[in-house]
Design a protein around this nucleic acid. Structure first.
Lengths: 339, 339
DNA sequence: CTGAAAGCGCTTACAG
DNA sequence: CTGAAAGCGCTTACAG
């Protein structure tokens, strides 16, 4: 099957290629009647302009890039990324933008991908995940002047546009809720310490625990996987003054923690209360269902995509604060059993 | 920052643009010494050929498309897709191919996306998921002559290349294992009945149960979500002659089933044995860990991508049988408690 | 309001 | 082995 070109449309409409281009792109320079006729013919023969030809003529690539820097096993198990992607995609495809995805091994490789995308003119802009403190990707993108939106913050985003959520406030809400239930020994199993949002949560956890006079509050590090979450939980629950409540930085570790508690013969929530970040459907799959801090991740992705399209359009875009995660109490939290 | 073009490289190397093109693409027509010099200069100034210009000159788009037809909530929670994507992506990026992702609402929308991609020359080929019986996407792709590899089968793939796994054999292995443990009343919670692989598993389940003389074997339908998996499990466990073992078509439903059993006061595995398909890390997160039918999904994706690149290269490619899922026994299966 | 033409940055026959 | 040139399919000033 031969692909129709703009010349085919022009010939059938009896106009020049230029006129077809104007008609399709909603530019002035063609009468309304002609425009309608051209549009009808284009639809009839199934014409869509070659994205390569458009991109080459100085127009945009109509594509946005997303590089993911996590190993496959973590990418697969965390609902976060797929939900984010589906939100990004929904916004992009509504504007006929394509999403180009690439998995990278580390930040250097990610920067190399950005350079290549830029040199190839393959994407009009990129979405940046997993922001770190003093992230080397930020100056690299600034230097390339490749439109970019950082998903994360606040802070450490340089001059780049970004969308962020107030994790500190959400964490404080969770701690205050546990304290209100009567908990005094609260621990937190954190995600990768190199990520900015982990650091923000760690600082917020220390701040709120200090403010509430909790002296036994400790953060232990993990990497978002179930194995590490389980290991961290075993360590916490084996300690002399074991916590009566644990907050996990993601749903997968929280579920692993629940399983460890059951394995150790501890009742949840009687002996141990559990709170998870990322209120994915996983949290409601287990028994008891997990109290979780959640927000609309597809919407977060959609907002980031919208910001990026604005940056690409040349608008001046700064930071956008997204909804703060809110706590949904379920069966995994209760007042601590008096011992 | 100005993007370097082939002319910049040619000027600095003191050769024609054609020579640079030959050198970069490994074509004859340039001496080895010149080639090395050109390559060095290209690397030095960070030149990558414009993908648009390459695509327009009749070369390939160097991109492959993947349309996903599942709602965000299912896409997010099932590790399968993200694992598949990361495998696809690993293979593609090793050959400098980009992956273009689009989420679609239904098969008609998916076909429209294929038509647009084809007309826009945006991708060189596509990967097709979630094959159905008499799938309307197959003839549509055949008509477009858009290179495609179907991930699924056997059967119903028309003339398209495909990769598939023998789910019937894997299911038989699981049933035989349960029967060997002493189970006679085995149920199955199936996935979306419209999908071909669900149908294949259903037929295989009926066949092997018949062969082994299990008269109470029943398949109930679900949709891969935890809610539906839980509902189906409640129904099964409330029946007069409730099964002593259940096989679930995915990990998410199996975990939901485990949770329902616990909620109903049934011991797993003492009162109920559970087997899950898709041995993702989720299966080892719960307590007891789930016996599961698993295989290497990233590798499956990589094989599909490799097949697609072969089709794009014009090679004659048929069906490729991938590894059969194998059973990993864990704590969720045991001989049935005598009642 | 319309047409003819240049140009985007490559690839690839075609001459030398 | 190398260079000059056509052409891919668009967009967009530039004339009319």
């Amino acid at each position: 099957m031969k692909r129709p070109t703009i010349a085919d449309v022009a010939r059938r409409a009896g106009v020049s290629k230029g006129a077809v281009s104007y008609a399709l792109n909603g530019q002035p320079g063609v009468s309304e009647a002609t425009r309608q006729r051209i549009l009808a013919i284009a639809a009839e023969i199934g014409f869509s302009p070659s994205s390569a030809a458009r991109a080459l003529s100085g127009a945009t690539a109509d594509a946005v890039g997303l590089a993911l820097c996590r190993p496959a096993r973590i990418l697969g198990i965390e609902p976060f990324f797929m939900e984010l992607i589906s939100g990004v995609e929904a916004e992009l495809s509504a504007r006929s933008y394509a999403l180009t995805l690439q998995v990278v091994a580390d930040q250097e490789a990610e920067i190399a991908v950005y350079r290549r995308w830029w040199a190839e003119r393959r994407v009009d802009g990129v979405l940046v995940c997993d922001l770190r403190t003093n992230d080397i990707r930020v100056p690299a993108l600034e230097e390339l002047q490749l439109p970019a939106v950082v998903i994360g913050g606040p802070g450490h985003t340089g001059t780049l546009a970004h969308v962020w959520a107030d994790d500190a406030a959400a964490l404080a809400e969770a701690v205050e809720y546990l304290v209100a239930l009567g908990h005094r020994r609260i621990a937190r199993v954190g995600g990768l310490p190199s990520l900015l949002h982990t650091e923000i949560r760690t600082d917020a956890f220390a701040e709120v625990c200090g403010r509430l006079g909790l002296t036994d509050a400790a953060t232990v590090w993990s990497d978002y996987t179930g194995e590490e979450g389980a290991r961290a939980t075993r360590r916490l629950l084996s300690s002399a003054r074991r916590p009566t409540a644990v907050i996990y930085d993601n749903d997968v570790m929280a579920i692993a923690g629940l399983s460890v508690a059951q394995e150790m013969g501890l009742g949840v929530p009687a002996d141990l209360s559990i709170v998870a970040w990322d209120d994915s459907p996983l949290c409601q799959l287990v028994h008891p269902p997990l109290t979780a801090l959640g927000r609309d991740i597809p919407a977060y992705g959609a907002h980031a995509a919208r910001q990026l399209l604005a940056v690409i359009a040349g608008e001046s875009v700064g930071g956008l604060q997204d909804e703060t995660a809110h706590l949904t109490p379920r069966g995994s939290t209760a007042p601590p059993r008096v011992r």
